[in-house]
Simulated scan of single mutants.
Amino acid sequence: MENINIGKKVEQYRKSNDLSIRELANQAEITPSMLSQIERGIANPSIQTLKVLAKVLNVPTFSFLLEEVNTEELVVRSNNRRKMVIDNLSYELVTPDISGKLATAIMTFPPGSTSSEKLLEHKGEEAAFVLEGHIRINLEGEEYLLETGDSVKIPSQMKHRWINDFSKEATILFSVTPPSF
């Protein structure tokens, strides 16, 4: 909770609504000096004041209590991706982590490899894009050849399997929501 700056959020919402301090204070029935102190972090608003400000600004009350995001943590440098290898398949996490609602990774399939021996399913909905190479995907028993630039959507719980029975490596960019790998 140390990254929460309620006053800054009040100010941002006020400005996005094109309201002056005086206008918002009047509508929220607080003094302009109190609102100014809240925005500067000098005074802490009561829950009741937050509820009134939220109503006037047309935002959920809890939006004032969400932690600030450290934008630096959102950037993943190509040489600093989290990597793992499972049965000759390489995975590089493109998103910073898998803690959110969406995760994106790059899968690398060496020649003659598959994602699994049998068709597997998971709760996450998936979209995949072939960055390089050729690969086959089996969706519920139907097989499709995907080439560089092709993509596929895999609905949640759909049984599927990736197959690289070609002589060159295949690289796939995929996103899954919610993360389930």
Rank of each mutant, 00 (worst) to 15 (best):
L119M: 08
E23H: 07
E140T: 09
L173F: 15
S20F: 05
G124F: 07
P96K: 08
E169H: 10
V152E: 07
H122E: 04
L66V: 12
I172F: 03
N5D: 14
E143V: 15
D87F: 08
I38A: 05
V152P: 00
A128P: 00
V10W: 01
G124Y: 06
S90M: 02
D165C: 10
V94G: 02
V10K: 01
S175H: 06
E2A: 14
L139T: 05
T171L: 09
S33P: 00
I86D: 07
E142V: 12
N58T: 14
P179L: 01
T108R: 09
G112S: 10
T31A: 11
N5K: 15
V94F: 01
D87R: 14
F129K: 06
Y13M: 05
T31W: 06
I4F: 04
F129E: 00
A105N: 02
S116C: 05
P111R: 06
I21A: 12
E142L: 05
I38D: 06
N88K: 13
M107S: 14
E142Y: 05
E121Y: 10
P178F: 04
L102P: 06
H160K: 11
T148K: 15
L53M: 12
T177W: 01
P178L: 04
L131A: 07
R136E: 12
P110V: 11
S180D: 15
G112D: 09
A25H: 02
T71N: 14
E143P: 00
K9W: 09
Y144M: 08
I42V: 14
E23Q: 15
I6T: 08
R14K: 09
T104Y: 06
G41F: 04
E92N: 07
S16Y: 13
S33T: 13
P110H: 10
K9G: 02
K159N: 07
N80M: 11
R82I: 12
G133E: 04
N70H: 13
V176I: 13
K51M: 12
S46G: 03
E68R: 08
E11L: 12
A170S: 13
S16I: 08
G124Q: 07
P110C: 09
E140F: 03
S151H: 09
P178S: 05
L89Q: 06
S46T: 15
E68S: 13
A43S: 15
A170Q: 02
I30W: 11
L93A: 12
H160S: 11
N79W: 07
I86A: 09
K123R: 10
Y13A: 03
S175R: 01
R82D: 13
N44G: 10
L120D: 07
D150Y: 11
Y144V: 05
S156M: 06
K15G: 01
H160G: 10
S175K: 01
V130A: 00
E140I: 05
S116T: 07
T49C: 08
T49M: 03
R77L: 12
I172G: 00
Q157V: 06
V59F: 01
S63W: 08
V10S: 03
E73Y: 06
I86P: 02
P32K: 07
E23L: 07
S78D: 08
N17W: 02
N138Y: 07
N88T: 10
